[in-house]
């Protein structure tokens, strides 16, 4: 007998399989040309024959995403702490940063390429641009969201600002940091692809541009699916770390 729990767990995967089957059947039934919408089986076959290229270009995109994301993290954390703790910096920097955040960073990609050339650097910079703000804004919010009673408690113990930061503010802001990282890592993949769209000789974004230009639609689909998995993988990696580090709730 199939248990209820199993049924509940099986619902989502079953739905995905059903959609794939529907896709395959529709494409075959209506004889859709493969350069418009390839069937899942054709995408899989194409992916197999292009496997070495797909793997290499995935590696390029993953590297750009990861390096850019980590640099954004390294840059935004000290800045967030400075903004949260110094009134002057807060008044000087925060309005500028918030204004910058309103610029669609994707629109800056061509400029970044113009300034930095066509190598890896401009892609990493675009990734930094898109993933920097979500981390910064969330960490600042977390550092400032510490409940007043907790601060009262620390003040009643005559704790120094450094002690308050270490024992209360930093742990309190950790879930906010992870929220920021989850947004940022998703943006980071988009940033890398945009960078590759504008000017590149490698990466999954480059593969999509090249294959669509040559009507190799199944290959473009394979690259897009890989990008999706990379994005999901990164997201769950961050969530995994979050569950390791944030084992508490209010």
């Amino acid at each position: 007998m199939i248990g209820r729990a199993f049924l509940r767990r099986a619902t989502t995967p079953a739905m995905y399989v059903a959609l794939l089957v529907l896709w395959e059947l529709s494409v075959r039934t209506f004889a859709v040309p493969s350069w418009i919408l390839p069937a899942p089986t054709l995408i899989a076959a194409t992916a197999r024959s292009w496997a070495p290229d797909l793997i290499y270009n995935s590696y390029i995109t993953i590297a750009e995403t990861l390096v850019g994301f980590l640099l954004a993290l390294v840059l935004s954390l000290p800045l967030a702490i400075m903004i949260a703790f110094t009134v002057v910096l807060r008044q000087l920097l925060y309005p500028i940063l918030l204004a910058l955040q309103s610029i669609p960073k994707v629109a800056l990609a061509p400029l970044v390429i113009l300034w930095l050339g066509v190598g890896t650097a401009p892609k990493v910079v675009v990734v930094i641009l898109v993933s920097f703000f979500p981390i910064l804004v969330n960490v600042v919010a977390g550092l400032e969201a510490v409940p007043k009673p907790m601060l009262d408690l620390m003040h009643s113990l005559k704790a120094s600002e450094a002690a308050i930061f270490r024992r209360v503010r930093a742990p309190f802001a950790t879930p906010y940091l992870f929220t920021g990282c989850k947004i940022a890592i998703t943006f980071a993949v988009i940033g890398a692809v945009i960078g590759e769209f504008v000017a590149a000789q490698e990466g999954l974004g480059y593969m999509i541009i090249i294959s669509t230009a040559q009507s190799l639609t199944p290959l473009a689909f394979a690259a897009i699916i890989l990008l999706t998995f990379i994005s999901i993988g990164f997201f769950y990696a961050v969530e995994f770390l979050e569950r390791r580090f944030v084992t508490w709730h209010l």
Binding site: M150, D152, K158, R167, V246, H249, L250
Partner: peptide, 19 residues
């Protein structure tokens, strides 16, 4: 002139650090 380490306070809310 400010809090003393010789005074203990128990607040209305427990204010335990959740982590």
């Amino acid at each position: 002139d400010g809090p003393s380490r010789r005074v203990g306070i128990m607040f209305q809310d427990h204010v335990l650090l959740p982590w």
